[in-house]
Simulated assay, not measured.
Amino acid sequence: MIVKYHSQLKTLGPRAAQLFTSVNELRKPTFTLADVRLITGLSAAAARNLVHKAQQRGLVTRLKPGLYNLVPFELGWATEHVGSPYLIAQELAGAAPCFLSHGTALELHRMVTQPTFTIYVSCTRRVRPQTVGGYDFRFIHITSAQAFGLSKHWIDKERFVMISDMERTIIDGLRHPAFAGGITEVAKGLWMKRDVLKADRLVDYALHLGVGAVVRRLGFLLEHYGLADASALERLRSTLTATYQRLDPLLPAEGSFVSRWRLQLNVTPEELDAVRLG
């Protein structure tokens, strides 16, 4: 959260009062100049002028050109305020289906020991990386068919955003380890939540996604940590082709080969076993 202070008195004129009352009633975490025009009926120039004056008086925070955030009155003399980055992420995605994923989901599910400083969002629309309100947002493009395995993450009693569930979070980490801290971090999350993760659901998700590298990595890790029975592992193995993939695509192509999973183990067994030690 970003908060700044000065001694200027906060006051509301009739137009500003109409705008902020409407924004609060709509439970919109942010609003645009188009929203201002729609609510107040002002022209584009008058809407910009209203928001500019409101910003000078500490009533709104400019997140980026054309996007603003209300400064709650309960913050007193605060003149800048950035609310939940997860709600901002949803706003940046627009109307396109999206959900918190990868390293952000790992952190929110408490599947990591180190925090991430980037907000990762999977979205069916291509959205460029950007920094808003001091937060870095990275959007991973997916197809509509890949928007599965989701749950609600509540921001407060009334507002929520969508997030990948624990199993989907692991699958996403196996597909794009770069957005989750690497394979060992994904393996750590898998081990940390071993008592609540459902192996059959992990297998279902991997097969539904249909990415061979994910199937290989999941099968190997489930077997290495003893987290799935033979039938679940065979469901994965039966789909393998002859192509080999690296266990961690971020690391060089070196290390032994495991024909059972068509993997090159460029992460040592000692590194994988260290995950069990927390």
Rank of each mutant, 00 (worst) to 15 (best):
I2E: 09
V3Q: 12
L9Q: 15
K10D: 06
T11A: 10
L12H: 02
G13K: 02
T21Q: 12
V23M: 03
E25A: 14
P29S: 14
I39L: 08
A44Y: 13
A47P: 07
L50N: 04
V51E: 09
H52G: 04
A54P: 04
Q56C: 01
G58S: 07
L63K: 00
K64H: 01
K64N: 02
Y68L: 02
V71K: 04
E74N: 08
W77T: 13
T79E: 08
E80F: 06
E91K: 14
P97Q: 06
F99W: 09
S101M: 05
L108I: 08
L108S: 03
R110Q: 15
V112A: 00
T116C: 01
T116P: 07
Y120F: 03
C123P: 03
R126L: 13
P129H: 06
F137I: 06
I142F: 12
T143F: 00
W154Q: 07
D156P: 04
K157R: 14
V161S: 05
M166G: 10
T169D: 14
I171A: 07
L174W: 12
F179G: 03
A180H: 06
I183S: 07
T184P: 02
A187K: 10
K198L: 11
D200C: 03
R201S: 04
A206M: 01
A206R: 09
L207C: 12
G210Y: 01
G212I: 12
G212F: 15
L221S: 03
E223P: 07
H224M: 11
L227I: 00
S231C: 04
E234Q: 14
R237N: 08
R237M: 11
T241N: 14
A242T: 15
T243V: 14
T243H: 13
Y244F: 15
Y244K: 03
R246K: 14
L247H: 05
D248A: 07
D248V: 00
P249G: 00
P249W: 01
P249T: 00
L250G: 00
P252E: 01
F257I: 12
V258I: 13
R262Y: 15
L263Q: 15
L265V: 13
N266P: 14
E271H: 09
L272R: 08
D273P: 05
A274S: 15
